[in-house]
Amino acid sequence: MSATLALLLRRDLALLLSGRRGGPVLPILFFLAVAMLFPFAIGPDPRLLARVGGGVIWVAALLAAILPLDRLVEPDLELGVFDQLALRGVSEEAVLAVRVLAHWLSFAPWLMLATLPASALLGIDAATLRVVEWGLLAGTPGLAALGVMVAAITCGLRGGAALGGLLVIPLAVPLLIFGAGAVAQAGIDGGGSGLALAAAVSLVLLAVAPFAGAAAIRAGR
């Protein structure tokens, strides 16, 4: 079982990273494009940009996380991969848990890397950047779990991708509040409480997502 899961993780990672299932390049470019739009929209005032910058990066990360939704579960369901794995004793829960991990690994490191140029565009100082990066580290596992869960729930539906985006946004609000809130609090307590709460939300989503997604896939069979 665990050997099969390791094999599955390697396969998922290869597919998600290679661009055969979208790949991280487009979402990351989209993230940078959104971060770049804000200075154009609200003007080049450095003080204002530095003040809203942390929140802008969080909004951009959330929007970028919506892009790969339709490639996360649907292709494997159409191919019958879930059925074949079930016949080999690998439950849908296990497949989705592996998928969350693979999705996070193929997405979060690049996002955190792209945050460096994005924060330069927004004029964010080093101390704030540190809190933003810690926040992304705490929050992106939750975003990955949420993405896989919503992808499993909406797969097979017509217009599932658009519906998936609509479902992710409200469910990601707690992550956004605590993650961006940590940036706002950085001057007071170093953002520690916000980071802890963002990590807590991530843990809840990680615990729920494989089971909710698997139930949705089985109900849809």
């Binding site: 094999l7 396969r11 597919l15 055969r20 159409e78 191919l79 019958g80 059925d83 074949q84 794995l85």
Partner: peptide, 24 residues
């Protein structure tokens, strides 16, 4: 089970797609 869905990744060469199941 053999049905109309081959469970083989369309983008991969056949040998690699089959190798995943052979390994599993």
């Amino acid at each position: 089970l053999l049905d109309e869905r081959p469970a083989l990744e369309p983008a991969l060469p056949l040998g690699k797609a089959l190798a995943f199941w052979a390994a599993a």
